Computed example of a mutant assay.
Amino acid sequence: MSKPLRLVFAGTPEFAVPSLAACLASGVEVVAVYTQPDRPAGRGRRLAASPVKQAALAANVPVEQPETLRDAAARERLAAYAPDLVVVVAYGLILPKTVLALPRLGCWNVHASLLPRWRGAAPIQRAILAGDSETGVDLMRMEAGLDTGPVLLEARTPIAPDDTGGSLHDRLAVLGAATLAEGLARLLRGDPPAPTAQREDGVVYAHKLDKAEARLDWDEPADVLARKVRAFDPWPVAEAVIDGERMRIWSAQAIEGDVDGPTGRIVAAGRDSIDVATGAGALRITELQREGGRRIRVRDWLNARRDGVAA
């Protein structure tokens, strides 16, 4: 009887948890899980385990949390697990060439875009910001470059007009796990997916999100601002000054047509929404958050205002 395939999984955030579950259910032997060290979280800033660490401990899988994989001790520790395959999903640490070369079957990565478009750290949000109509996940064989390796399997999904960074994240996490499960199943039955080199054209980088990007500029077109509201939900959340008050904006849509008055001015107020003039059209806001407050519907904000809203 042949020995089961030995797999090391490396991942950190919630996005990686379904992929870890797919590995655990695949028939391979998950011999260790690598994840980022515990970090301060919450108002008390207490050290908190990553979602992947929590899932690994619940499954009784050994957990490793090195600060880096670049030193010899960390590499020797990984080599001691004798992995046939390493699967990486949003791990957050760079794998040096010596680590990439360690498993006999190489290293696989689940990436949340249709490569070579949106290589890098924030492919989900960048796809929404750019107005892409479609995205997906690629199961890729890792190499030294940033998301440059050949693609093993790909799955696509449309980006809906109401998709947020959060909703698309959750859907791609499930899709990525299913794609990984298919790859592992093919590997185990002796029919591994064939690598296909990425196209040389169409390379776009998904740079890490910066909190400053979430500040809305009313001189921009309404459709651009609406995409920012969706992309930055649930983090870092779009914010803007409305009627002299800085607020977070959680839900909004673009309204086409000419708008009278300067940008940033409230030009209409209904029972459930307010329209704010932009560089092209208006942004209709339905859900917001005052500083120090909770997320509320616009109707509740309007009802709380003693002076009403000037249209």
Results as ranks from 00 to 15, higher is better:
276 V>G: 06
3 K>S: 14
149 G>A: 09
106 G>V: 04
56 A>E: 02
85 L>H: 03
167 S>C: 12
160 A>T: 07
226 A>T: 05
201 D>L: 09
204 V>H: 08
210 D>N: 13
114 L>S: 01
62 P>H: 08
24 L>P: 02
63 V>W: 03
119 R>H: 00
97 K>N: 05
135 T>Q: 01
295 R>G: 00
151 V>H: 00
216 L>D: 01
163 D>C: 08
197 A>F: 05
187 L>R: 10
147 D>F: 06
242 I>H: 01
284 R>H: 03
242 I>R: 01
297 R>E: 11
70 R>C: 01
257 G>N: 12
177 A>E: 02
244 G>T: 08
113 S>K: 03
83 P>M: 08
283 L>V: 02
179 T>Y: 06
86 V>A: 06
201 D>M: 08
167 S>H: 09
44 G>D: 13
60 N>P: 00
98 T>E: 15
166 G>D: 14
277 A>Q: 05
255 I>H: 07
157 T>S: 12
226 A>C: 09
183 G>L: 09
287 E>C: 06
206 A>N: 03
65 Q>L: 03
186 R>P: 01
76 E>I: 02
295 R>E: 08
119 R>G: 00
233 D>F: 12
203 V>K: 11
121 A>P: 01
174 V>D: 13
296 I>S: 06
309 V>I: 15
247 M>R: 14
170 D>M: 07
89 V>S: 04
188 L>C: 14
57 L>M: 12
275 D>V: 03
147 D>Q: 09
209 L>Q: 07
38 D>S: 10
67 E>R: 10
254 A>K: 06
242 I>E: 03
199 R>A: 15
234 P>E: 10
36 Q>H: 09
238 A>S: 15
198 Q>L: 11
153 L>V: 10
166 G>C: 10
238 A>P: 01
189 R>Y: 06
113 S>N: 07
245 E>G: 05
162 D>T: 12
31 V>T: 14
63 V>A: 07
286 T>R: 13
39 R>I: 04
251 S>Q: 14
240 A>N: 02
37 P>A: 08
12 T>M: 02
292 G>C: 10
106 G>A: 05
104 R>V: 12
208 K>Q: 12
24 L>Q: 11
